[in-house]
Computed example of a mutant assay.
Amino acid sequence: MSRIAYFGPAGTFTEQAARLLAAADELTPVETIHAALAVVRKGEADGAVVPVENSVEGPVSATLDGLAEEDPLVAVAEALLPVHFSVLTRGEEGPIRTVASHPHALAQVRLWLERHLPEARPVVASSTAAAAVAVQAGEYDAAVTAQVAVEHYPLHVLATGVADVPDAQTRFLLLRAPGELPEPTGADRTSIVAAAPNRTGSLAELLSELAMRGINLTRIDARPIKGNFGIYRFFIDFEGHVAEPRIGDALAALRRRCHVRFLGSHPRADDVPATIAPGAANDDFVNAADWVAAVRKGELA
Rank of each mutant, 00 (worst) to 15 (best):
K42M: 13
A100W: 01
A196H: 14
H116V: 12
A168K: 00
A149H: 09
K297C: 07
H156Y: 14
E15I: 00
F285T: 02
F172S: 01
R41A: 11
V76F: 09
Y140H: 15
P51C: 05
D71R: 14
L80A: 07
T160Q: 10
H241W: 04
F235L: 13
A277Q: 15
P278V: 03
D167H: 13
R171M: 08
P72T: 03
R3C: 00
T98M: 08
A253F: 06
R255W: 07
A211P: 10
M1G: 09
P9W: 06
R246F: 10
G161L: 10
V124Y: 04
A5G: 09
E119Y: 04
I276H: 05
D237G: 15
A35L: 05
P59W: 03
G47H: 06
T28F: 06
I247G: 02
A195P: 12
P166M: 00
E244V: 03
A187K: 01
A36I: 02
F7E: 03
A187F: 15
A269G: 12
Y232T: 10
V49H: 01
R213A: 09
H152D: 03
V39P: 10
E57T: 15
T98E: 11
Q108I: 04
R90P: 01
G43L: 12
T218D: 14
L106R: 02
A130E: 04
I220H: 03
F235P: 12
V123F: 01
S61I: 14
D283C: 05
E205L: 12
P59I: 09
Y232N: 15
L67I: 00
I192M: 09
L64W: 00
E26W: 08
A288W: 01
S55G: 04
P72I: 00
A131V: 02
D249A: 15
F262Y: 15
E139N: 10
G186W: 11
L158Q: 08
L175Q: 14
T190C: 14
L203H: 12
V30G: 01
L210A: 11
N282I: 02
